[in-house]
Computed example of a mutant assay.
Amino acid sequence: MRLILRIAAVVAILYASWLMVLLSLPYISFDPYVDFLFTKQLVYKIHHWRWSFYIHVFVSTAVLVAGLFQFSRYLLQRFPKVHRAAGYVYAVTVIALSGPSGLVMGYYANGGVWAKVSFMILAVLWIGFTIAAMYAIYRKEWKKHADMMTRSYALTLSAVTLRFYAYMIDVLDISVSPRAAYIWIAWLSWTLNLILAEYLIRRRVFTSWRAERISA
């Protein structure tokens, strides 16, 4: 049963990554009047926001896939160099590109101050957990590294859960104002992920075999 759940999770994340690719394709034209950008006309002219948006959109899939590799038992045991390479790609991308660009986008987010606060906290925690994971591996603190990577990737998946919750509100036709819905989604997209991450950490779902293999 546990194996089935793991396979289902991997398939779901890979499918979500493919959807992220499809969502990012319209922005390759750099047309300011495409999809989400229709709602950002007041800030599109701001250079650092515009650069942050395109960076965030175009590297999102790489972060999702590279992070997923970190939780492959088979990859860690059979191809540890690939595991490490993917880990460095993930960490550098989050710390230098995705995290900072997310922080800028959070500052200019739709939905008012509460949505802005949520996305900015998300970006800071995302960068912080990833730095902590890299520092732990530098100090050979294997368990802490595994725990911090679990938290970091939980926040990475907020890009997926945010869109999932938005889709469910539309499908279920929940009676709520667009502004209120966006604020709720902004917070739930990452807080519920972190709660699940803490549950997995306490159950030592990833920690034991990751720590055992890395320290070998």
Score class of each variant (00 low, 15 high):
Arg151Val: 11
Trp190Ala: 01
Ala166Thr: 12
Ala136Cys: 03
Arg151Leu: 01
Thr156His: 13
Gly87Asp: 10
Tyr88Arg: 11
Leu68Ile: 12
Val92Tyr: 00
Leu19Gly: 09
Ala133Leu: 02
Ile169Tyr: 12
Ala136Arg: 07
Ser72Ala: 13
Ile13Val: 12
Arg204Val: 09
Ala9His: 09
Val34His: 06
Glu198Gly: 07
Ser24Val: 08
Tyr153Cys: 06
Ala91Ser: 14
Tyr165Pro: 00
Val205Gly: 01
Ser98Trp: 04
Ser17Met: 02
Trp51Leu: 13
Tyr165Arg: 08
Ala159Ile: 10
Ile185Gly: 04
Val113Pro: 13
Ile127Thr: 07
Leu200Tyr: 05
His48Gly: 11
Ile121Tyr: 05
Ser152Thr: 00
His56Trp: 13
Arg73Val: 05
Val171His: 12
Pro32Asp: 06
Ala86Tyr: 10
Arg50Gln: 03
Gly87Gln: 10
Tyr44Asp: 05
Trp51Tyr: 15
Leu97Gly: 15
Lys144Asn: 01
Gln70Met: 11
Gln41Ile: 01
His56Lys: 04
Phe36Lys: 13
Ile131Gln: 00
Ser52Asp: 00
Thr156Ala: 10
Leu200His: 04
Leu125Arg: 05
Tyr167Cys: 01
Ala66Lys: 06
Asp147Ile: 02
Pro26Phe: 09
Val176Asn: 04
Tyr54Ile: 09
Trp187Asn: 00
Ser158Asp: 07
Ile4Ala: 02
Trp51Met: 11
Phe30Gly: 14
His47Leu: 11
Ser72Asn: 13
Gly99Tyr: 00
Leu155Phe: 07
Met149Tyr: 04
Gly102Thr: 04
Ser72Tyr: 05
Phe53Ile: 10
Ala216Tyr: 14
Ala16Pro: 08
Thr130Tyr: 00
Gln77Tyr: 10
Leu157Arg: 03
Ser24Met: 07
Ala9Arg: 00
Tyr90Ser: 02
His145Arg: 06
Met134Phe: 12
Val57Asp: 06
Leu5Val: 04
Val57Thr: 10
Thr161Val: 11
Tyr90His: 03
Ile131Pro: 04
Ala62Asn: 14
Arg139Ser: 03
Phe119Ile: 09
Leu188Ala: 03
Met148Phe: 08
Asp35Met: 06
Ile174Phe: 13
Gly99Asn: 06
Lys144Trp: 03
Lys45Trp: 15
Ala211Glu: 14
Leu172Pro: 06
Trp51Pro: 01
Leu3Gln: 14
Val160Glu: 08
Trp126Ser: 08
Phe36Ala: 14
Ile13Trp: 06
Tyr108Pro: 13
Ser24Asn: 14
Ile7Pro: 02
Leu155Glu: 03
Thr156Val: 02
Ile55Leu: 10
Ile127Val: 02
Val21Gln: 09
Ser52Ala: 13
Arg139Asp: 03
Ile185Cys: 03
Ser158Cys: 11
Trp126Pro: 00
Ala9Ser: 06
Glu141Asp: 03
Lys45His: 14
Met105Phe: 02
Ser24Cys: 09
Arg84Ile: 04
Ala136Pro: 03
Asn110Asp: 14
His48Tyr: 11
